[in-house]
Design a binder for these strands. Structure first.
Length: 483
RNA sequence: CGGGGCGUGGCGCAGUCGGCUAGCGCGCUGCGUUUGGGACGCAGAGGUCGUCGGUUCAAGUCCGACCGCCCCGACCA
């Protein structure tokens, strides 16, 4: 790298983001436009995200399976809204083995259709329900403009697909998975999120209702970090997913789908990163602790490395993800900066003084400068590290929440919305109509994010009117600049 | 697709009133000295100047076309 560090956020947030992704070794541009190469460090982060989500899916009775990458074009065309929504961004295969194909194959942009087709064969009776399936896969959407992790032509994700006997069960599932996403975001990624329902305009093509978790990024823009859809009987009808109920009558199933993608990595970068680079929450960080040995000569090296080895072994033994940076050609100072840029939550230094005093120097990534440093005894280091990692995890969530809450504003009218539109999120009564949302987006660049579930529980006042157009309000909605 | 910027060793750039062996910083290799907040010295390796065509005694430099990338807007997890 020619220059050290990353572009400051205040100078150019978007440049900062790209710098962080490239310089912290998460990913790189690929030779194909809009595609990326996820490097080992970035992939390990994704694997940790994946493991935590997968654990939660299994715990709620879901099973993993795998469906094909290629989908017959005719499948997509069965659901009118679905095909209309996706056709502009499809990659289509027309030649196979040198021969023009009878029917073009779509590279999956999502799998509702193939899975719908399959479900129709798997489901016969109410005894087969609920059917709870998830798949980890790559998908392709031909986007006009791409950004590393946030929107790439090909991305990795998880898509859950379920079928149920009743609308209520499907709705329950839809919200259960939304809560799992929230739980992951808050407790693993340390990002507070707002759960809400998408407006008609923003919902998934083919869904009856879409739900979202929205997170606030460092520039106060919103990012949809996960979605969950109640698909009603839309896909059941076109793919003939039917079951025989207890009264021996044929019924259409109620289906759901839900997904989280590698975009989550982008969320983590932008919700926590600072001018020094990445900051990773300990629970999902590929490296939780980096240990930098310090010595001047062979004699010191021998003494230091002896202690380094002992400390490293003890931490590794209790599954702490520790990395010893024993590169000889770099100075400790360089390593400190390097690992800070790469977001490692906790740094340990062991030098001659520590060998003599039986201590270890620690530096927290979440607290900059001297404040975040301390010298601790080698004795009891496991407990110390575990405690600190836990504190860092909670500290990061607290910081993100304080920032987020400081930038949420309730507004009474359109003027109020305009005032906060490019510097935070605006909560207001909203009619939910397409015209209104289009107007707001054109005039303020802010788009409707969601009707937050928590804030729309109570009966709304009879005279609640849209803050922008004055028509009867559907509920309270957040508007914000969004990725 | 519209607006803006840019293509020169791995990365960041200079060189562009045409002129001789195409430079600089970082990185890389070797050796030595260094090492508690981005070390230093010496010796090296590495470039069909985005592509194609034109003008010229001579093109990184001028002209034309094309290709690609990045940023800002219209579609989306």
């Amino acid at each position: 790298m020619s220059q050290q560090g990353v572009t400051p956020q205040s100078e150019d947030y978007s440049k900062w983001y790209t710098d962080v992704v490239l310089k912290s070794n998460l990913a790189d541009y690929a030779p194909v436009r809009g595609c990326m190469i996820i490097k080992p460090y970035g992939y390990e982060l994704w694997e940790n995200i994946k493991a935590e989500l997968d654990k939660r899916f299994k715990a709620t009775g879901h099973q993993n399976a795998y469906f094909p990458l290629f989908i017959p074009m005719s499948f997509l065309q069965k659901e009118a809204e679905h095909v209309e929504g996706f056709s502009p961004e499809l990659a289509v295969v027309t030649i196979g083995g040198g021969e023009k194909l009878e029917e073009p194959l779509v590279v999956r942009p999502t799998s509702e259709t193939v899975i719908g087709h399959t479900f129709s064969q798997w489901v016969q009776s109410y005894r087969d329900l609920p059917l709870l399936i998830n798949q980890w896969a790559n998908v392709v959407r031909w986007e006009m403009r791409t950004r590393l992790f946030l929107r790439t032509t090909e991305f990795l994700w998880q898509e859950g697909h379920t079928a149920h006997e009743t609308y209520e069960e499907a709705q329950e599932e839809t919200l259960r998975m939304l809560e799992i996403y929230e739980d992951f975001a808050v407790n693993e990624a340390a990002i507070p999120v707002i759960k809400g329902r998408k407006s008609n305009q923003e919902k998934f093509a083919g869904a009856d209702a879409s739900y979202t978790i929205e997170g606030m990024m460092g520039n106060k823009w919103a990012l949809q970090m996960g979605t969950s859809h109640n698909l009603g009987q839309n896909f059941a009808r076109v793919f003939d997913i039917k079951y025989l109920d207890k009264k021996n009558e044929q019924q259409y199933c109620w289906t759901t789908s839900w997904g989280v993608s590698t975009r989550m990595v982008g969320a983590i970068i932008m919700a926590h990163g600072d001018d020094k680079g990445l900051r990773l929450p300990p629970r999902i960080a590929p490296i939780q602790v980096v240990l930098v040995p310090i010595y001047k000569n062979e004699e010191e090296k021998a003494r230091v490395m002896h202690v380094v080895g002992r400390v490293a072994d003890s931490l590794l033994a209790v599954r702490i993800r520790l990395h010893v940076d024993d590169r000889e050609e770099l100075t400790p100072g360089f390593k400190f900066n390097d690992w800070e840029m790469r977001g490692v939550p906790l740094r340990m230094e062991i030098g001659p003084k520590d060998v003599t005093n039986e201590t270890i120097a620690l530096a927290r990534r979440d607290i900059p400068g001297k404040e975040g440093k301390q010298i601790v005894p080698q004795e009891g280091i496991i407990a110390t590290v575990m405690r600190l990692l836990n504190e860092i995890q909670h500290g990061m969530l607290r910081q993100a929440r304080t920032f987020r809450d400081a930038n949420l504003h309730e507004v009474e009218d359109y003027e109020g919305l305009k005032r906060v539109a490019d510097d935070g999120w605006a909560l207001m009564w909203h009619c939910g109509t397409a015209e209104c949302e289009r107007r707001v987006q054109e005039e303020t660049k802010a788009s409707s994010r969601c009707f937050p579930l928590d804030l729309n529980k109570e009966e709304k006042p009879k005279d609640a009117r849209c803050a922008v157009c004055g028509k009867p309000a559907q509920g309270k909605a957040y508007f914000a600049r969004a990725y």
